[in-house]
Every structure is written in structure tokens, then in C-alpha cells.
Design a protein around this nucleic acid. Structure first.
Length: 929
RNA sequence: GCCGGAGUGGCGAAAUGGCAGACGCGACGGACUCAAAAUCCGUUGCCCGCAAGGGCGUGUGGGUUCAAGUCCCACCUCCGGCACCA
């Protein structure tokens, strides 16, 4: 019976922990605190994937380790439960999303408990809980009540927004409009991918080649009223405050690139009226000289944004985006038809397709010209979709000699190229592409200036003459925050209805006390014929409300899935608080998160959105720190098992992998049918046939998905945990290997036999476990293991920590007398990694449960030092011998001992020793001639 | 195209500029067994050699250094991300 049986001991200790509330966290920490957080999962219908336990085991080891060291540990888990799959399942089957979500959560919870994670389950939450939604909506109201004050760089209450006199003079409604236009949560008409055939709005990634991914129906981009969050106001802080957080440099860079700050200038180009434009331009420039550069461009100019105002003299044409508001006004009669056709084609393409077709530039001449602000020369205006309406001003000045895109466009359409920058130290050939910095030529008064000086000077000159101004732009766009979907948080917003039952355009926020706004009961989740969200079909009972004698219609969009995950780390601290989203003292005591582990797929969006919300809450005084996440680590992906793939021709014969043709079909080859030959694997029976070897991402279609339930059944939860940590570095991508799991299981079996008598009927101590005083060597082994494992957990190097424990077991397994005084501390070291086994061994050793809260062994430095060390002796850098010397032997002693080694002496005989390098405790090298 | 990351035994991997391959898998040999499994012990980078020993070896080519998997330069391959942001 007492073989190591995870199926018996794992459920036993899971129930014990649950019954004893072993991992319950107090409201406030005492002493040192650690907030150890996992990115919570979306509870999909497929259940847990082996990728989940990787990060979860890593944090669990850290949490358990810290607890054993007396740290107050916050280690919660919950579910990111709103989202599309549940809704699509509902459309297919009619099951309400709330039901399928509840079922999926149950599965996830069971699986997470089965793996023995030490979460405080009393803090579990789901983003779909009404008690959670309430506060998500409350935070939305905070965003709605906040404007960004550029003078202080902070968000402030909307009541503090200065109202210009002309606005207050225009009346109450105008003041409201002014406020609405400055809120961090605002409405705008943004283009969306609308698929009439499917009756739904699609995400960009659901549109391929202008048609829907599912069904291949045409998709058009239509403007639709949307909720936006003004994340761009925080762009600078989101970028700059990355400096203070302990994140991988690559993730910081990813975020910084995503924010994409660029500096340059905006310049206005006067639109030449047909006919005599000279005089009009002169008047216009004179007016600008006096009046300055207007805040918003009038209808008489095209405003462009450029990062290279030093190339102004090289402008040969302008381009406006197809959606640019002035296109109609610009287009001449002769070009009207061509422009209309072009714009319609552009509307059919998603942003993704536009960029996909990057090779071939397209565009149409509008027939209009602008006047170059510095030279007065006419410049043709084109419409082309290589210019994005959503970036900068939606219009550019084209400098084909110094911009690759403009260069390609100009070559396609035979437009002029004027060289105005030449590389410093050489002269560029006129009419070629040069995008680097250099020295100005053909640039009037600026000739000879280097690029940087030119940019500064022309910026000042443009500002002085009212023709332009320095400007900053971001790739980051405001966050499109509404979805035309059912399964998300409703907005706590009402739209006022006029006497005719139509919206007046006025909106009002619900009071805090009215939250949460619950989702209405619907029987049908299907999309309709219009882009109206499903909630628009709710009964009037839900939809229409009266407040203060006025009628309102509820907002029928819902929030995107990101909303719930933007602040869950705060709610975990105080999940049942019904007065506040988190109590202030609790927040101050636990925040920020000390260790945050999750997949790299959230490197940009989730982390950026959460940081944005956090900063707004910080500005408004609701949280105490500006950044939510201190140390961030991305676990790597776990791939399927390594596969060998051969190729067969149509006739059925093998084709070597490097010669395969399109028509050849791949075939799985078993590992025992191949062998390595040089760089490649070949078929054993046909050594000239190469086969491909690699591991693939796990996917249902490939059939290489590993199911954690199955692994637990076959090997136990502790084996799964330990294997995932032993596979390699946490952050690396690594292939699954079933034999690897069984190897780790073998180690746990050996741990078991180290302590337990396998031949006895009951779990009793092995006869080898004795009360002997441990020897010095045994203590050395123990303390070194403890020392190494401690350091490795702190650096998240779990694979080497486990290797060290294996060495320990290898040392003690052959011993007939194993001192309890060494085994007991070892069991505590094992506990964070294989907690169920450790609890069972602890019990067999007769110690009071739980080992999970036992003290982590103290390391005695004394046992880390060696008395004697063996150092390598090199001659000319080649290893020629080893000598054993006292650990504290100095350079001279070391050199003498090395020279005395017979083999070394032989090699040195008759040679001239040019130099000796002796590093105490490490090595000796004789350089001879 | 741009930006990351990675290339080390048959495989997963380890290695503050100082003995390359710890640890695990696999393989081979041995003990136990009627036998097998399990377990325990041993061997295992490649080549030459009976051995002692020697040579080669961390994607490729150069460089720095007494000493390079590790630092520098150039290149190749694979993986991931971004992709007309003016």
C-alpha cells in the first residue's frame, strides 16, 4: 500500500487545507508583505490548459516560500468571465451566457484546486459578479467625471474644468457639451467594421481581405457612435513612468513603441482658389503673420503633420487620407468620379488590409493645388490610403526624396522628386532616396544647416509667421471602449429623450447608489439588421427610465472584456466591501503588486489599460501609488511534444524535407524511425531522406493538446507542478515531454522512499530514518541545498532549484542511516514545489501539520565554506591537471602546488614560464614558451 | 522591412570571463528476479587509442584576453511580435 500514491494524498491535503483555512490572508499584513499575483484566466469551455499551471505554479512556489519565511502573503485567484466565446455559445445553443460561464468557472475552480495552489479562495471573484460589475461601472463614472488638466498633467474632477466665458454665456446646454467634450470617457463617431450579412460589428482581426473571416461576407467601415477613453492624455506618463517599474526591458520597449511618441511640426498649406491664387495667398500669409497659427485649421488650409520639417523645401505634393473632411471640397469636377470610386474602395478595406497591400501604392489626384507656405509654389493634392485618417492630421506633405513611402508613391505616379538633404561628408545624388539626417541644400535661407538645427530653427520660424507650430503625436489612439455585444458590463449612462421619443443628445450618469446596472434578461442574443447592440432589444422596462420627470433611454453598448481585468488586482484586496471598491487602508497596506506573472500576449494592451485606469484612480485620490505592478514576468509558451515530419510525393515515396514540393504531403514519423545525421534528422531506413523536427504550438486541430486532468490522473498534481518548473527557464518557450513528466515523477518517488517504508502496510517511517547526529558532510549537503533553493526561488530559477533537490536525494538515497535532522528540513524545502507530498512526508515524520506553514530552514554560512578545494591547472589555457589545496590558499601557495603536480611539472620542464595567472580558489594557468 | 528572443550531447537543459555539458530523459551495462516490471548501482559529447593518454567540441567567420558558451564586430538559421504612424 504505501507506494507514493498522489491520487490518495493530494485530495487528502487539499481538503485539509480547505478545512483549516490554511491560506486565508488577514485583512492587513503584519510585518513584511508580498502581493503575488497571477493574470487571472478567461474560463473557456475547454477548461484549463497546461499553459495556465506554468505561471500559477511559479507564483504558488513564491507565495508558499514567502509564507514559510513569515511574510504576509496576498495570493488570490479569480475569473475574467465576460467575453465573446460565451456569447457566441449562447447564440448557437440558446444557453444564457451567465449559465455557461458559471459552469466553466466551476470547472476551472475544480482544476485549480486539484493542482494544490495556495490561493485564499475566500477572495475569489469573477468580473461578471454583480458586486464586481457595480464597481467596474463606478470606475467608469470616475473616468466620466474626470478631465485631464494639461497644465498639471493630472486628471481632475470635471467640476473643476474651467468654462470659457463665451461657453457659459451660451447657456447650460453648451456648458454641458463643453464638459462632455473634455471627459476622459466621451462619445465619438468612430468607424467600425460592420458586416450587414452577419448583422454584427467585427473586430479588425475578424476581417480578412475586406470580407468577414466567417462566411466571407462583405464588410464596410461605417461611423458609429462609440464610447472612447482618453488614454492619449496619459500617453506621456504611461511612457515615462515605465522607468520606475521592474519589468523586462523588452516589455517596456513594447509598451513604449506602442505609445509611439514622435515630435515634429504641424504646417498649414493654403488651398489655392482656382484662378488667380497669388493675391489670395499673399493676403492669407499676411493674416497669419498677424493672427498667428489657429488652434484648429480652417477650411482654407490643409494641415499636415511631419517629423521632418527640415524637408519642407522638398515637398512636391500633398496627400490626404480618403476619409479626410476636405476631400469633397478639394475635388474638382473632372476628378469627382475617380475620387468617389477610390474612397468607396478604401471604405471597404479594413485598416489591416490597407497595410497588407503595402507593396502597391494607390491614389487619385483631386485636381486641387495648395500653396507651399515658404516658396509660394503650387503643390498638387492627392488622395491615397497610405495616409491614415486617424493619425496626426490625416494629411501629409510628401517629400519623395527623403521618405520611402512618398518615394514609392511618386515613382508610381511620376511625381517630382526634389533633393533637399545630402548626407554629411558626401554628396547625395539628386533624385535618389535618402532618409537619414544630413545637411540641407536647395532650402533657401536654411542651406547648409544640419538636420537637427534646421528642425529647431524652422519650427521657431513657422511659429513666428503663423504658418506652423511644433507638435507631438502618438501612435497610441484613444481607446474604443464600447462593444455592440451582450455579454459585458452595461454602461451606467442614460440618454435623454425628447418629447418625440428621440434622443436629445444630452446624457447623464447614474448615481453611485443606482449601481450596478444589471444586464437585462434576453431570450435572443442574435445580432440584428442594424448595428444596434442586442441590449437595444431589451424590454422598455429595462431600457427606459425616468429621473426628475424626464425620460431616458439606457446606453445599450457594453464595455469590452478589458474593463474587468483593469482593476481586479485591487478588488482582490477587499472583495466583499460594499461601501468602496477597496478600503483605503487595505489598498495602502498591500499595493503595489510585488510579483505579477502571466503570458506575454498581455504585454501591451492589458498592462497599458490597467496602468491607465490606475493612474486616473491615483489622480483622483482613490489609490495610493501611481503604478500598480512592481515586478512583472512573462512565462514562456509550452509547445506540444516534439514531432518528426516526413514528406511523401504523390506516388507515395519519401521526399527529403529540403526538396519537398507543394504537392507533397506531410506525414508524422515516430521518433524511433529517425536518427540524427550531421545537422539534420533522417529516416533510419532511408538515410538520404531528411525529416523536419520541431515542436508546434498546442492546438485542437493539430491534436497535440495536453490535458492537465489527464496528467494529474497519470502522474499526480505534484508531478505536473514540478515538471512544468523543471522543463527549463520560466520565460522560455519549451516543448512538452511526457517522458520528462515521468522523470520528475521518479524523483518524487525517490523522495517518498527516502522517508517512507515502501514495504510496510501503512505509511510508516523507513527503517533507514534514524535520530543520528548528522555528519558534517550531511549538514553541508543540507545547507547548500537550502541556500541554493532559497536563491533560486528569489530569482525564479525553479529548474535549477529542483536539480539541486535531486542532488540532495541522490546523496541520501544510498545511505542506510538517514538522520531525521536532515530529512525534516529537506521536506520543508520541498514543500513549496510539491506541497501534497511534503505534507504527507511531514506527517509520516510525526510533525504537526501543516508543513505549508512550517519555518523555512535557516542557512548556516559555516556549511557553505569548503576546507579544501580542487582547482584546475592549465598550461597555455589547456586543462592539464588538478590540485587539491586549502580553500584559503593564496596565489603563491596555489602556484607552488600546481607546479608540483607531476604532469604539470613534466610539461613545464625545459620551458620558459612567461606568466602565471593564479586565481585563489578558482584556477591556475601557466603561460609557457 | 523593423523590433525582440534563441541557437550548447540523441532530447529538455546547466554554467559571477576561470574544469563546458550540473540535473533530468533516453540509451547501454550490471545487481535483484524463474522471468519481466519496479528498484538499486555504474557508463554515456564526438574522434583516435588495448591502455596511459591525445585531438576536436557551445550556429558560422573574425577579434579582445593568460583564459570566451559568456565580451566586441560581421553573418546564417529558427521562433515571437509589429508592420505605410509621416
Amino acid at each position: 500500500m504505501p507506494r507514493y500514491q498522489p491520487a490518495r494524498i493530494e485530495p487528502k491535503w487539499q481538503s485539509w487545507w480547505q478545512a483549516h483555512d490554511t491560506f486565508a490572508t488577514p485583512r492587513l499584513p503584519s510585518g513584511r508583505k508580498r502581493y503575488v499575483l497571477d493574470m487571472f484566466p478567461y474560463p473557456s469551455g475547454d477548461g484549463l490548459h497546461v499553459g495556465h499551471p506554468e505561471g500559477y505554479t511559479a507564483t504558488d512556489i513564491v507565495a508558499r516560500f514567502e509564507r514559510m519565511r513569515g511574510t504576509s502573503v496576498m495570493h488570490p485567484m479569480g475569473f475574467d468571465a465576460f467575453g465573446l466565446p460565451a456569447e457566441e455559445h449562447a447564440i448557437r445553443t440558446g444557453t444564457p451566457p451567465r449559465e455557461s460561464t458559471a459552469r466553466n468557472i466551476e470547472t476551472f475552480r475544480r482544476q485549480l484546486k486539484m493542482l494544490g495552489f495556495s490561493y485564499d479562495w475566500g477572495r475569489e471573484l469573477a468580473t461578471t459578479d454583480p458586486g464586481y460589475v457595480r464597481w467596474t461601472q463606478w470606475i467608469f463614472l470616475v473616468l466620466f467625471d474626470t478631465w485631464f488638466d494639461p497644465t498639471t498633467g493630472r486628471g481632475r474632477a470635471i467640476a473643476e474644468l474651467p468654462i470659457p466665458p463665451e461657453v457659459s454665456a451660451a447657456g447650460e446646454a453648451e456648458v454641458a457639451r463643453h464638459r462632455d467634450a473634455h471627459r476622459l470617457a466621451y462619445q465619438s463617431e468612430a468607424p467600425v467594421n460592420w458586416c450587414p450579412a452577419l448583422g454584427t460589428v467585427l473586430a479588425n482581426e475578424e476581417v480578412i481581405g475586406g470580407v468577414s473571416e466567417r462566411g466571407g461576407h462583405p464588410v464596410v467601415r461605417i461611423p458609429l457612435r462609440q464610447w472612447m477613453l482618453r488614454i492619449t492624455a496619459y500617453a506621456d506618463r504611461l511612457e515615462q513612468e515605465l522607468e520606475g517599474v521592474d519589468w523586462p526591458a523588452s516589455i517596456k520597449k513594447l509598451q513604449s513603441d506602442w505609445i509611439g511618441r514622435s515630435t515634429g511640426a504641424e504646417v498649414d498649406f493654403f488651398i489655392a482658389p482656382p484662378g488667380a491664387h497669388g493675391a489670395a495667398f499673399a493676403d492669407w500669409s499676411a493674416a497669419r503673420r498677424g493672427g498667428g497659427f489657429p488652434q484648429r485649421p480652417g477650411h482654407d488650409v490643409i494641415r499636415v503633420y511631419t517629423t521632418r520639417p527640415d524637408t519642407l523645401y522638398g515637398v512636391t505634393y500633398l496627400v490626404v487620407a480618403p476619409e479626410h473632411p476636405l476631400v469633397d471640397a478639394l475635388t474638382t469636377a473632372g476628378q469627382r468620379e475617380a475620387i468617389a470610386a477610390y474612397r468607396e474602395a478604401a471604405a471597404r478595406k479594413s485598416d489591416l488590409d490597407r497595410t497588407d497591400l503595402a507593396k502597391e501604392k494607390t491614389g487619385v489626384f483631386t485636381g486641387a493645388h495648395c500653396i507651399h507656405p515658404l516658396t509660394g509654389a503650387p503643390v498638387p493634392v492627392w488622395v491615397a490610403d497610405y495616409v491614415l485618417a486617424t493619425y496626426g492630421t490625416g494629411a501629409i506633405m510628401a517629400v519623395p526624396a527623403h521618405d520611402e513611402r512618398d518615394w514609392e508613391f511618386a515613382r508610381t505616379f511620376g511625381l517630382d522628386v526634389i533633393t533637399v538633404v545630402e548626407p554629411t561628408g558626401g554628396h547625395g545624388h539628386s533624385g535618389t532616396l535618402f532618409t537619414g539626417d544630413g545637411r540641407a541644400i536647395h532650402s533657401g535661407p536654411y542651406d547648409g544647416l544640419d538636420t537637427r538645427t534646421f528642425i529647431a530653427r524652422v519650427g521657431a520660424d513657422l511659429a513666428a509667421t503663423g504658418l506652423g507650430r511644433p507638435a507631438v503625436n502618438y501612435k497610441l489612439r484613444d481607446w474604443l471602449f464600447s462593444r455592440q455585444r451582450f455579454w459585458g458590463e452595461p454602461f451606467p449612462i442614460l440618454h435623454e429623450l425628447g418629447p418625440d421619443g428621440q434622443p436629445t443628445g444630452a446624457i447623464r450618469a447614474l448615481d453611485e447608489g443606482e449601481l450596478p446596472v444589471r444586464l437585462p434578461e434576453l431570450t435572443d442574443y442574435r445580432p440584428g439588421d442594424t448595428p444596434d447592440p442586442p441590449l437595444a432589444r431589451a424590454s422598455d422596462e429595462w431600457l427606459v427610465v425616468e429621473r426628475d420627470g424626464r425620460r431616458y433611454r439606457r446606453e445599450t453598448n457594453t464595455m469590452p472584456q478589458w474593463a474587468g481585468s483593469c482593476w481586479y488586482y485591487l478588488r482582490f484586496l477587499d472583495p466583499n466591501n460594499s461601501d468602496r471598491f477597496v478600503a483605503a487602508d487595505v489598498e495602502r497596506a498591500w499595493m503595489p503588486v510585488d510579483l505579477y506573472i502571466g503570458g506575454a500576449e498581455h504585454a501591451v494592451l492589458h498592462l497599458l489599460y490597467a496602468r491607465f485606469w490606475h493612474k486616473v484612480l491615483y489622480d483622483r485620490g482613490h489609490v495610493s501609488c501611481p503604478e500598480p505592478f512592481g515586478r512583472l514576468v512573462n512565462q514562456g509558451m509550452i509547445l506540444g511534444e516534439m514531432e518528426f515530419t516526413g514528406y511523401r510525393s504523390e506516388k507515395g515515396g519519401w521526399v527529403s524535407a529540403e526538396q519537398r514540393a507543394e504537392a507533397d504531403t506531410p506525414a508524422r514519423v515516430r521518433a524511433d524511425q529517425v536518427e540524427k545525421q550531421g545537422e539534420h534528422f533522417v529516416l533510419r531506413d532511408s538515410p538520404r531522406t531528411r525529416v523536419e523536427s520541431r515542436a508546434y504550438k498546442m492546438s485542437k486541430s493539430r491534436g497535440n493538446v495536453v490535458n492537465p486532468d489527464q496528467v494529474v490522473r497519470d502522474f499526480g498534481a505534484d508531478s505536473l507542478r514540478l515538471y512544468e518548473m523543471f522543463m527549463g527557464p520560466l520565460e522560455a518557450t519549451k516543448p512538452w515531454s511526457t517522458t520528462g513528466v515521468s522523470g520528475v515523477r521518479g524523483f518524487l518517488d525517490r523522495c517518498w522512499r527516502l522517508v517512507v517504508d515502501e514495504r510496510a502496510e501503512d505509511p510508516v517511517l523507513a527503517p533507514q530514518v534514524v535520530d543520528d547526529q548528522p555528519t558534517d558532510d550531511q549538514l553541508r549537503e543540507l545547507h547548500r541545498t537550502a541556500h541554493k533553493v532559497t536563491a533560486d526561488i528569489e530569482s525564479l530559477s525553479f529548474n535549477t532549484a529542483i536539480a539541486r533537490m535531486m542532488e540532495f536525494v541522490n546523496v541520501f538515497t544510498p545511505l542506510d542511516r538517514r538522520p531525521r535532522a536532515v530529512l525534516e528540513p529537506f521536506v520543508t524545502i520541498l514543500a513549496p514545489f510539491a506541497p501534497h507530498l511534503a505534507e504527507e512526508l511531514w506527517e509520516v515524520l510525526g510533525r504537526p501539520a501543516p508543513v505549508s506553514l512550517a519555518a523555512w530552514p535557516a542557512v548556516d554560512e559555516r556549511w557553505l565554506r569548503d576546507d579544501v578545494v580542487e582547482v584546475p591547472v592549465q598550461v597555455n589555457g589547456k586543462l592539464r591537471g588538478r590540485v587539491t589545496v586549502p580553500a584559503d590558499a593564496d596565489t603563491a601557495a596555489l602556484e607552488a602546488a600546481a607546479a608540483a603536480d607531476p604532469r604539470v611539472a613534466e610539461l613545464l620542464a625545459g620551458k620558459q614560464v612567461v606568466k602565471v595567472v593564479a586565481v585563489p580558489g578558482r584556477m591556475v594557468n601557466f603561460v609557457i614558451r
